[in-house]
Structure formats: structure tokens, C-alpha cells
């Protein structure tokens, strides 16, 4: 078995700000890795670099596909990256509106990604879309409604259905529960936890929510000022934090 994605020596600057300062990371099949840290720590930049949405100043990102071929993400053409995003990867944005087409029906939003992946049978696509609405605990009767009418939590469920319908091997999630009510967050986290375990997905999850990381992730990386200051098994990092910043982060969480 090999790592799905491996990154080394990543550097990225925005003017005087070091967004990434010599970051390395690897993720293996079936592994859920959380990247935590405060705003401006570089965690979202890291995710965008790994997903080929942002070029780094230096470093290397290698993705190994199902056939065993290795893709150098930082050198890949836009077309190659789009292909990977259609076939192998998924990206769940914090704001569902960044991913959904608001004027297209819920079923269309899910089906569109299937069609992009080469599925052409309309009846089949509708059936699969309905099935996925159910899997994300949405009422399949709303398949023809547009997401404009949906609550924030429902839009996020729809985005997850749209992302997972093509059976990606690696899913990038950027604050997937950010901006939602606490009760909605809990249900959504629970849904993600179940789907990730059932599908054996590899997930790179960026979050500032320590509780979410504890619930979902096998492994945690703590970022600050563009550097990974601590990493390890989720329960080890959270129960025995070593780095001063990790101790601050963990001690700032209210026990519920």
C-alpha cells in the first residue's frame, strides 16, 4: 500500500506573510486527517495547494491514482487537474454556494457531477441522485427544487451528496460545518462521520473546530504561522498536547 497524496517542502508567501513554511504531509487510503489552527495559520492555503487550486512557490505534491500512476499536482495542467477533480477527488467548500448551482434543481446538482464523470443514462442518473439525497438525509421528494429554497444545513448536505456521488478516493473539506447553527453542525458532522466510515474515504479536513476534529479524524496536524507545529494520532495530540500553541488551542475549548 502507498500514500494517496504526499507533499514535501511546501512554501507559499503572500507578500510578507508566510502562508506555508516548509510543510510536509502524506495521507493514506481510508485515513481522515484534520488540519487545525486559527485563522491565518495557513491551513486553508495548504488545502488549496494540495488540491491544485493554488500554486505553491516551492515544494512538491504527488498524487497516486487508482492505476498506480503518479501525478505531480504543482506541475499538472488545468485540464489534468479538472480531470482529477471529476474522477478521483471531491472538494467540500465551507460555503455550499461556492459549489452548488443555485438555479439548477437538487437532482440536477448531483446528477451534473455524474454526467461530468461520463454517466449518460438519464433515468439512472435521477435514480442515483435520489438515492444520494436519501443518504445525506434529505427528502428525495425535493429532488426538483432548487437549492435557493434550502436552509444552510440542507445546502451543505446537497453539496456533500454532489461531491460523493462519483465515489471519489480523496475528499478535501474546508470548514464543512462553518457558519451553521450548532445543532445543524452536530447532525452534519455525524452524517460525515458515518459516510466517511462506510465509504472508507480518505479525507483532508481543514477546521478550527477541535471537537469536529476529534470526532472525525484519525490524525491531526496543528498549524501556526504557516508551519506544522505538532502532529500525531488525534487523541494523543488532544489529550497530551506538547507544543505551547496546541496546549493553548486545547485549553480554549469548552468541555461539553
Amino acid at each position: 500500500m502507498n500514500a494517496l497524496l504526499e507533499a514535501q517542502g511546501l512554501h507559499l508567501r503572500f507578500g510578507a506573510v508566510r502562508a506555508l513554511d516548509d510543510v510536509a504531509l502524506s495521507i493514506w487510503p481510508g485515513e481522515v486527517v484534520a488540519i487545525v489552527g486559527e485563522s491565518g495559520s495557513g491551513k486553508s492555503s495548504l488545502l488549496r495547494v494540495l488540491a491544485g487550486m493554488q500554486r505553491a512557490d516551492a515544494g512538491q505534491v504527488l498524487y497516486r491514482d487508482a492505476a498506480g500512476a503518479t501525478h505531480s499536482i504543482l506541475d499538472a495542467s488545468d485540464a489534468a487537474l479538472r480531470r482529477l477533480m471529476r474522477s478521483d477527488w471531491g472538494f467540500v467548500h465551507q460555503n455550499a454556494r461556492d459549489a452548488l448551482r443555485m438555479e439548477v434543481s437538487a437532482g440536477g446538482n448531483v446528477g451534473e457531477r455524474l454526467m461530468a464523470a461520463g454517466n449518460r443514462h438519464y433515468g439512472n442518473i435521477r435514480e442515483v441522485a435520489a438515492h444520494w439525497l436519501e443518504r445525506v438525509e434529505m427528502d428525495p421528494a425535493r429532488i426538483d427544487e432548487t437549492p435557493k429554497n434550502f436552509s444552510g444545513g440542507m445546502q451543505q448536505r446537497l453539496q456533500i451528496a454532489r461531491t460523493l456521488v462519483t465515489s471519489p478516493r480523496l475528499v478535501f473539506m474546508d470548514e464543512p460545518t462553518g457558519g451553521l447553527d450548532v445543532s445543524v453542525q452536530a447532525k452534519l458532522l455525524d452524517l460525515i462521520r458515518g459516510l466517511v466510515a462506510d465509504l472508507g474515504l480518505a479525507v483532508l479536513l481543514v477546521t478550527h473546530d477541535i471537537a469536529a476534529a476529534r470526532l472525525l479524524a484519525h490524525r491531526i496536524m496543528v498549524m501556526r504561522h504557516g508551519q506544522v507545529v505538532e502532529e500525531g494520532l488525534t487523541d494523543r495530540v488532544l489529550d497530551d498536547p506538547r507544543h505551547p500553541y496546541t496546549q493553548l488551542l486545547v485549553s480554549s475549548v469548552l468541555a461539553a
Binding site: G232, L233, D235, R236, D239, D240, R242
Partner: peptide, 8 residues
């Protein structure tokens, strides 16, 4: 907890 890897 050290034996389990919960503490390093």
C-alpha cells in the same frame, strides 16, 4: 495511556 499511545 502511554502504553496505548494516548500519551506520548
Amino acid at each position: 495511556r502511554c502504553l496505548y499511545g494516548n500519551y506520548g
